[in-house]
Design a protein around this nucleic acid. Sequence first.
DNA 1: CTGAAAGCGCTAACAC
DNA 2: GTGTTAGCGCTTTCAG
Lengths: 319, 319
Amino acid sequence: MAATIKDVARACGVHVSTVSRTFSAPHLVNPATRSRVLAAADDLGYRPNRAARALTTGRTYNMGLIVADIANPFFPPLIKAAQAQARGRDYHVFVADTDEDPRVEEELIRTLTKQVDGVLLCSPRLSNRMIERLAEDVPFVVVNRRIKGMPAVLMNVAQGAKLALEHLAGLGHHRIALVSGPIGSWTSNEMQGVAAEAPGLDLVFFGPNQPTEAGGLAVAPDVAACGATAVLAYNDLVALGVIEGLAAMEIGVPDQISVVGFDDILPGRLNRPKLTTVAMPTVAAGRMAVDLLLQSGGEGATVTLDTALIVRESTGRAQ
Amino acid sequence: MAATIKDVARACGVHVSTVSRTFSAPHLVNPATRSRVLAAADDLGYRPNRAARALTTGRTYNMGLIVADIANPFFPPLIKAAQAQARGRDYHVFVADTDEDPRVEEELIRTLTKQVDGVLLCSPRLSNRMIERLAEDVPFVVVNRRIKGMPAVLMNVAQGAKLALEHLAGLGHHRIALVSGPIGSWTSNEMQGVAAEAPGLDLVFFGPNQPTEAGGLAVAPDVAACGATAVLAYNDLVALGVIEGLAAMEIGVPDQISVVGFDDILPGRLNRPKLTTVAMPTVAAGRMAVDLLLQSGGEGATVTLDTALIVRESTGRAQ
DNA sequence: CTGAAAGCGCTAACAC
DNA sequence: GTGTTAGCGCTTTCAG
């Protein structure tokens, strides 16, 4: 059914190698024959078989994209952007979800290795050592993780946290609750770094917490009890949970307590009050990760992308 | 670097075909040699090259999954489920986003064709004729679309709409606004079918609308003006937009007007009031689509999945 | 500029 | 039970 290079060769009376050249090195073939070949190919609906081609060239024109959880609203924009960028470079992308399980992640990478030219690892759960080991067999680009000598796309969480804190301070808030996420996560670490050197603010730390709405809901009472007039949450989901928990206690946002999230996911934009948040550059990160992977020379290049504070309705002047 | 079948063969002094058999037909090889081969393979970190294998067997163990918009919250759960199911069947999945553009969709399918054993088309934008044409080269399963003789996974929107209408009627609502989506969409058509034979309800139709929050926001004034006490929206995004538009006019939900959405996406669950909605079986659909594709015999099998009404806080008794 | 031949990694008859 | 041979679809020397 699907036409092969042979069919095309036969159809226009040339050798297969000429057909091959027409597609992979057009300048090496006589314009006249070239157009005959092209015509025949078009006529038969011929497309080179990329997998077969990869066998000899070593380039698959495929890449892997591994994320912890596709359904986490943080990832879809990144996946979409990466996939679009890849398509623009004539690449296809295998998308896989690890269910946050390191073993699944490892196995996935192993089975993908031969089939791709590289893998994008987003917020990987694997140990650095394991990643370095796997990297011997296939190039990686890691997102939101720093591994010596490995290309990485980082989001400037520290800068975002600083922006958020300044915004809050500017509104007259002094005592601010810092609602962190899971232990050891990139974002949590960065946030704490900033907190440590906060400009004369009174920061109250809460954590670790689940990085979900439930996590936020659960700490809301403690947050309310600690006397803070504002909270900076690990991510938007947590922020939304905090707001809901506060509402259950009849504490208004932003009238009584201001809340800032991280990520800028869709639910935050639809919420009422609309969430003030530090927008993560997920779209840029997806694009950049693809570019980093493709510019093979990029030995360990690290790109840090800026975040941006988006002020909406969940923050207001301190009472 | 990555070990090939030859390396393994050499390492344990057997012919490559024996190594090959050890992996693809273990029962045909002597247990003793088999374990020697396995040991050597394990030692070298050998994994069969799936692309090379596909060249002779014709099975790639890859599939394509094409959606209109990865970032639309309707799709991620489906993508996640499909990908997980595929992994369980030892398949990898190429995920691609068409940006709602039929031409991109067509080109994507064409370049994917040779590389996959089949393609899952979710809410495709292509014409039936084009899909049928492309299906000559690669098996398809379509989701939320009916094409004669083609395996399909359908979501029972009509049943869901009926459930929602009954729920509303039970709460004393008679005049109900039907806020539809784009013309010709599967869901819109199904909803209208049900509306046509509504059990003595006074249905007011609004449409077409953009299937987004903005779409809902835009019709909110008309909905308010028509005197309806309840609205059934095309999807959750539209429903959320309607609620927001109503709020801007100081019309409370559910106190003054009840709102029901479709899909059960995350933002609806986080909203206040939490959205009453018809849950679409996206997870089941993703799984089922994969199964349908793999049980090759499945000539045109069509599976219809039930929806479920989830009553939350955006509906209440009619005033 | 084009054809011939070898080979990528693997499987699949077919012998022995 | 295992080796031999041919070949999947394509690229890439190497001749001519």
